[in-house]
């Protein structure tokens, strides 16, 4: 998954229309909100623009500069909120925190944003979306919530946890599988040179092959032997 904010320029209709979405991967447009300014980190607001919310990501496209646009996956939005406190920001807005994948740089990224316009947008950790029509805030918030819930963490992370919990069993399974996998692989490799095996007893050839594999394994390294012993006390 892609963390952080990124530049987005792919527009339909000769680069002037809606953002090009990944419809092949079931990406659908959920909501369009015209008249939205975007504030990245401590940069000045950019407006006017249009906000496009799909079931996968939030895209903001500038209405004036057709080359300017930003997108962030819902997977990377840690938190979003309705901010109406004038002390926090002068206009009511949707406030979002963005996970960048480089947590240590959070503070420096913020201070960089103040002085450096050309900053790498992938380091932006905060985003404000300021609709000119304030009455749309609650609706926008609800759509954000709905879409965030459509984007749980990807499966591989759950599987990792699964492995982790059953690490002892998993380790044994993995070892067995690897050994089988290795011998199959070596067998296949040797079949590339079938002379001497072709007319012979296939079982015998197979046994010889296995013997060779075993020999190699124990010749190679003493460490391996220790590991095997440790694994089967």
């Amino acid at each position: 998954m892609v963390l952080g904010l990124r530049n987005f320029t792919e527009r339909s209709g000769d680069g002037v229309g809606e953002p090009v979405l990944d419809t092949a991967n079931e990406e659908d447009l959920m909501h369009v909100q015209p008249g939205v300014a975007i504030v990245l980190g401590a940069r000045p607001p950019e407006s006017p623009g249009t906000l496009y919310i799909s079931n996968k990501q939030v895209v903001w496209l500038s209405d004036v500069d057709k080359e300017r646009g930003y997108a962030v996956d819902f997977l990377a939005i840690s938190l979003h909120a309705v901010s109406r406190d004038p002390e926090a920001y002068p206009s009511p807005c949707i406030y979002a925190q963005i996970e960048t994948g480089a947590d240590e740089d959070v503070d420096s990224a913020d201070s960089d944003a103040e002085c450096n316009e050309s900053l790498d947008v992938s380091q932006i950790t905060e985003m404000r979306l300021v609709p000119s029509d304030h009455s749309q805030l609650e609706a926008l918030f609800d759509i954000f919530c709905e879409c965030a819930e459509l984007n749980p963490e990807p499966d591989e992370e759950q599987e990792e946890e699964h492995n982790w919990i059953f690490s002892a069993d998993q380790l044994l399974d993995d070892t067995t599988m690897n050994e089988e996998g290795d011998s199959q692989w070596q067998l296949a490799e040797n079949l590339g040179n079938p002379i001497g095996y072709a007319n012979g007893n296939h079982d015998l050839a197979h046994s010889v092959l296995e013997l060779r594999i075993s020999d190699q394994r124990f010749d190679d390294a003493d460490e391996m032997e220790h590991e095997v012993q440790d694994g089967h006390p």
């Binding site: 909120a81 926090a88 406030y95 918030f141």
Partner: peptide
């Protein structure tokens, strides 16, 4: 300080 009292908040 910038997050001072947001009204409602969704946390992943």
């Amino acid at each position: 300080p910038h997050m001072l009292s947001v009204r409602n908040c969704f946390i992943r």
